[in-house]
Write a protein that binds this DNA or RNA. Structure first.
Length: 787
DNA sequence: TCGAGAATTGTTTTT
DNA sequence: CAATTCTCGA
C-alpha cells in the first residue's frame, strides 16, 4: 500500500486516501490527475474497500478508459480489467441494453448519429410541409439537443413555447421523438435521458446499480451536462462515495450542453463534501505556465487557483504574426522538421477543422508524415455508413433510415417515386419500411419490373440474414459479402475512380475492426446462451457508434499530430504550435457576436488555456494577417488572447510594415518587434528557421530522424491515417510510371512526371501538376497512380 | 430514373 | 472555396 502512495505529493496522497464521502478534486492542467485517479482505484482495491467491479470510473473518451484500465492493471496486475471504466455514453448503453424493454424499446435499439438525426429531421420537415429555410434541421436539432440536455422533454417544451416559432419547434420535437421510437432508435442524448428515465421509473433497477458501485469516480467533471449530473447523483445516492475530478478552467464543451455549474457548485449539491486542489504542475516549463496563467487570469467565473511548477524555466513561448495563412502553415511545418523533437512529440493545434487543410498540403509537399485527428470521423465516411446501414437493416429490421440510405445504393433502379410509394404504404399500414418492402406485392401502382427490383432488395437482405442465422458466418465474412454481393464495390469503382482505392481501404479497415471485435467479443463470457449471430452483430454496431475520433488515434509511429483544440484535451506534447490566433477565428466570430459575449469569450479563453498547457517544453503561437474563408480573403488582427500574454514572458515577432521583397523574405522577420515599445534582450528562437540569420540558416539542430527506425512495427496502420503515415514500414518500391507519364495524386490531382530520382531512402519524383505547379514528392508518400 | 452541371449554402468546437 | 442540394435534359 505504501507503493501506491510513493511518488505522490501531499495533496495527491490526500486525494488518494480520502475515500469516503463526496470529494471534489480540482486538478489544474498537468497536475497528475490521471495518476491520482488510477492510484485511487488501486488504493481502494488494495485496502480491501472494494472489489474491482464495485468501482465505477467514468472517463471522457473510450481511449482514456482503456488507458486507465491498463494503468490500474500495471499497479495491481490482474485487477484493471475488472474495474468498470467507461464513458457516460457506453455505460448508459450497457445499462439500457439490460433493461430498456421496460421503457417499451427493443433491446437491440440502434443509435443515431448526427447524420442520421439530420436525415430524420429532413424527412419530418418535408412531411409536415415546413419551410426548410425557416426551420433548418441543424438549428432545430440543436434546440432539441439543448432541451434534452436540460431534461426538457417534448411536452415540457410545448408548455414553455410562447410564440408561433417555438410552437412549431415543439411540433417538430414531438414528431422527432415519435419517429425515433418507431425506428427503435436512440440519439446520443437519449442514451443519457433514457437511463435517467429508467432509474426514475424503476427504482429497483437503480438500486441494483447503486448497490454494485460502492465507489464512483468521474473524470473531466467540468464537462458534464445536467443529465450526466443527474446520473451521477442517482448512482451515488446509496454510498455517497463520489469523487469527481476536474478543472473549471478547462471547461470547453458548453456548446454540447456541459454545465459548468456542476463543478462550480459541487459542494452545494453534495453537502459535506471535501475539496482538494492540485496546483502543482508537472508538465510544462515555468515560462509556458506563466504565460498560460496570465491568459486565464482574465476569466472571472472561476475557482481561485494558481498553478505552479518546479520545472525548469525553459525557453520563452513565441508569438509570430505571418502575412498569410499559407505562410503560417509553411513556417510551422518547417519548424516541425527542424525541431529537436521528434514529429510525434509535436502537435499543431487550431480552432477549426477547416484550418487543417493548409497544414496538410504543406506536410504532403514536404513529405512530413502526419495524422489529422478529427474532421470527418471514420464512421461517418460514406462508404462506411453505407456498409453499416446494410448491417443495421440485417440486425434491426425496423431501421427506416438505414433502408432509405441504401435502398438504391448501389443503383438498382429504385427511384424516388417508387420509394415514396413504399413510404406511403408503410405509413398506411403502420409498419416499418423494411416490412413494407417485404409486402411489396400489396403496394398498388407498381409495375412488374419495379416489384421485382424491390423483391431483389429484400431477397438480398434475407440472404444475409440467413447467412448469419443459419450458416453462422463471421462478421468479417458478412461484411465482405455485403461489399461484394451487393455490387457495392463495383459501383464505387464506377462512381469515383479516384477515391475508390481509399474507400475500399476504409472498408478493409472496417472489416479488420470487425474481426478484432469478434475476437474480443467471443472471449467475453457475459453473453446469454441462446443468442444468435444477430445479437453479436447488434453489439458490434453499438460499439462502433460510440467511438470518438480520438479513440482511434494510434500512437505508434513517428508522425506529426494535427487537431483542433478540443481534440487536444487531456493530451500533452513536447512542442505545441497554436495556430490561427486571430480575432474572429480564435476567439471565433460567433463568440464575439452574441448578445452577451462575455460568457462565450471566457469559454474561448479556456480553450486557449487548454491549448497552451498542452505544451511541455516549447510553445509557438501564430496568426496570419490574411486568410481565405468561404472563398473570400479577409484580413484580421491578432487575437485578444495575444494581448493578454505577459509582455516580458513571450517573444513576439511581427512582420515589418514595409512592402515585402520576396528575395529576402526571411529578413522581414529578422528583428522581432517588441510590442508597445517594450524592450528586452531577445532570446534566440531556434525553430522558425531564418529568424536569426537572414535566410542562409545555420541550423545545426538534428532533424529528428533518429526516430524513424524505432517505430514498433507489426501493428497495422489504419487506412484512415492516410497514405502518408508509414514511418519505418515504408518500403522502397519502384514506381510503375516513368518520366513523361501522366499521373494522379490524391491531393494534387493530375500532372506530368518530370523526373524520377533514385535516392537512398525512396524515389523522389518531380511532378508538374496541372493545378498546383511543380512539386517534389517521395514516391512512398505521394501514392501516385498512372493514368 | 439518373447524371451532369448549376445554384446555393455555409463554419466553430463533438460524445 | 468546398460540399451539398437543385434542375433539367435524356
Amino acid at each position: 500500500m505504501t507503493d501506491l502512495l510513493a511518488g505522490l505529493n501531499d495533496k495527491q496522497k490526500e486525494a488518494v486516501q480520502y475515500t469516503e464521502g463526496p470529494l471534489l478534486i480540482l486538478a489544474g492542467a498537468g497536475s497528475g490527475k490521471t495518476r491520482v485517479l488510477t492510484h485511487r482505484v488501486g488504493y481502494l482495491i488494495e485496502r480491501g474497500l472494494a472489489e474491482p467491479w464495485q468501482i465505477l470510473a467514468i472517463t471522457f473518451t473510450n481511449k482514456a478508459a482503456g488507458e486507465m484500465r491498463d494503468r490500474v492493471d500495471t499497479l495491481l496486475p490482474g485487477n484493471g480489467q475488472d474495474v468498470f471504466v467507461s464513458t457516460f455514453h457506453s455505460m448508459c448503453v450497457r445499462m439500457l441494453r439490460r433493461d430498456i424493454d421496460r421503457l417499451g424499446y427493443d433491446r437491440d435499439f440502434t443509435i443515431y448519429d448526427t447524420d442520421d438525426q439530420k436525415t430524420l429531421m429532413r424527412g419530418i420537415l418535408k412531411d409536415l410541409k415546413m419551410d426548410p429555410k425557416q426551420y433548418r434541421e441543424r438549428g432545430v436539432l440543436s434546440i432539441i439537443s439543448a432541451s434534452k440536455n436540460e431534461m426538457v422533454d417534448a411536452d415540457d417544451y410545448e408548455q414553455g413555447a410562447s410564440d408561433f416559432y417555438e410552437k412549431n419547434i415543439a411540433k417538430l420535437y414531438k414528431e422527432y421523438e415519435k419517429r425515433l421510437r418507431k425506428n427503435n432508435a436512440l440519439d446520443f442524448d437519449d442514451l443519457l435521458i433514457k437511463t435517467v428515465e429508467l432509474f426514475d421509473e424503476y427504482p429497483e433497477v437503480l438500486e441494483n446499480w447503486q448497490r454494485r458501485f460502492r465507489y464512483i469516480m468521474v473524470d473531466e467533471y467540468q464537462d458534464t451536462n445536467t443529465v450526466q449530473f443527474e446520473i451521477v447523483r442517482l448512482l451515488s445516492g446509496k454510498y455517497r462515495n463520489l469523487c469527481v475530478v476536474g478543472d473549471d478552467d478547462q471547461s470547453i464543451y458548453k456548446f454540447r450542453g456541459a454545465n459548468i455549474e456542476n463543478i462550480l457548485s459541487f459542494e452545494k449539491s453534495f453537502p459535506g463534501s471535501k475539496v482538494i486542489k492540485l496546483e502543482q504542475n508537472y508538465r510544462s516549463t515555468k515560462s509556458i505556465l506563466h504565460a498560460a496563467n496570465e491568459v486565464i487570469k482574465n476569466n472571472h467565473e472561476r475557482k481561485a487557483k494558481t498553478l505552479w511548477t518546479e520545472n525548469e524555466e525553459g525557453t520563452l513561448p513565441t508569438f509570430t504574426e505571418y502575412e498569410t495563412a499559407s505562410e503560417e502553415a509553411d513556417r510551422v511545418t518547417d519548424a516541425v522538421m527542424r525541431s529537436v523533437y521528434r514529429r510525434c512529440e509535436q502537435a499543431v493545434l487550431y480552432r477549426t477543422n477547416a484550418q487543417s487543410r493548409l497544414f496538410e498540403e504543406k506536410c504532403i509537399a514536404k513529405s512530413i508524415p502526419y495524422v489529422i485527428v478529427g474532421g470527418v470521423n471514420f464512421y461517418q465516411r460514406k462508404e462506411i455508413k453505407d456498409i453499416l446501414s446494410y448491417l443495421r437493416i440485417i440486425a434491426n429490421g425496423v431501421d427506416d433510415l438505414a433502408v432509405g440510405r441504401v435502398i438504391n445504393v448501389p443503383k438498382r433502379g429504385i427511384g424516388d417515386t417508387t420509394f415514396q410509394k413504399v413510404i406511403d404504404f408503410a405509413m398506411l399500414e403502420g409498419i416499418s419500411l423494411y416490412d413494407a418492402l417485404c409486402r411489396a406485392d400489396e403496394i398498388t401502382g407498381l409495375n412488374k419490373g419495379t416489384l421485382a427490383k424491390l423483391n431483389g432488395f429484400t431477397d438480398l437482405i434475407e440472404g444475409f440474414r440467413s447467412k448469419v442465422l443459419n450458416d453462422n458466418v463471421s462478421l468479417k465474412e458478412l461484411i465482405e459479402s455485403v461489399r461484394d454481393d451487393t455490387g457495392y464495390a463495383e459501383e464505387l469503382a464506377k462512381d469515383d475512380p479516384v477515391e475508390t482505392e481509399s474507400r475500399l481501404q476504409n472498408i478493409e479497415e472496417l472489416i479488420s475492426k470487425a474481426s478484432d471485435f469478434e475476437e474480443e467479443d467471443s472471449e467475453n463470457s457475459e453473453h446469454e446462451e441462446n443468442e444468435t449471430g444477430l445479437t453479436s452483430l447488434a453489439r458490434f454496431l453499438e460499439d462502433v457508434s460510440l467511438v470518438a475520433d480520438i479513440d482511434r488515434t494510434d500512437d505508434t509511429g513517428d508522425v506529426l499530430t494535427m487537431m483542433t483544440l478540443h481534440g487536444a484535451k487531456g493530451l500533452e506534447f513536447e512542442k505545441v504550435y497554436l495556430c490561427g490566433m486571430e480575432e474572429g477565428l480564435f476567439p471565433s466570430y460567433a463568440s464575439i457576436n452574441v448578445d452577451s459575449p462575455d460568457e462565450e469569450i471566457e469559454e474561448e479563453r479556456r480553450l486557449c488555456y487548454v491549448g497552451m498547457t498542452r505544451a511541455k517544453k516549447e510553445l509557438c503561437m501564430s496568426s496570419a494577417q490574411t486568410r481565405m474563408t468561404n472563398g473570400e480573403t479577409h484580413s484580421s488582427h491578432p487575437s485578444r488572447f495575444v494581448d493578454e500574454l505577459p509582455r516580458d514572458g513571450v517573444e513576439i515577432h511581427r512582420k515589418k510594415k514595409k512592402q515585402a521583397s520576396w528575395e529576402d523574405l526571411d529578413d522581414d522577420y529578422d528583428n522581432p518587434i517588441p510590442r508597445r515599445g517594450f524592450n528586452k534582450p531577445q532570446s534566440f528562437a531556434a525553430e522558425f528557421g531564418g529568424f536569426g540569420s537572414g535566410g542562409s540558416k545555420s541550423v545545426n539542430i538534428s532533424r529528428g530522424f533518429g526516430s524513424l527506425d524505432t517505430t514498433p512495427s507489426g501493428k497495422k496502420k489504419s487506412a484512415y491515417m492516410g497514405a502518408f503515415v508509414k514511418g519505418s514500414e515504408m518500403v522502397k518500391e519502384k514506381p510503375d510510371y516513368v518520366v513523361g507519364d501522366r499521373v494522379v495524386s490524391v491531393k494534387f490531382g493530375q500532372g506530368t512526371v518530370k523526373e524520377i530520382l533514385d535516392t537512398e531512402r525512396d524515389y523522389q519524383i518531380t511532378v508538374d501538376f496541372d493545378k498546383f505547379g511543380t512539386k517534389k514528392l517521395l514516391a512512398a508518400f505521394a501514392k501516385l497512380k498512372k493514368v
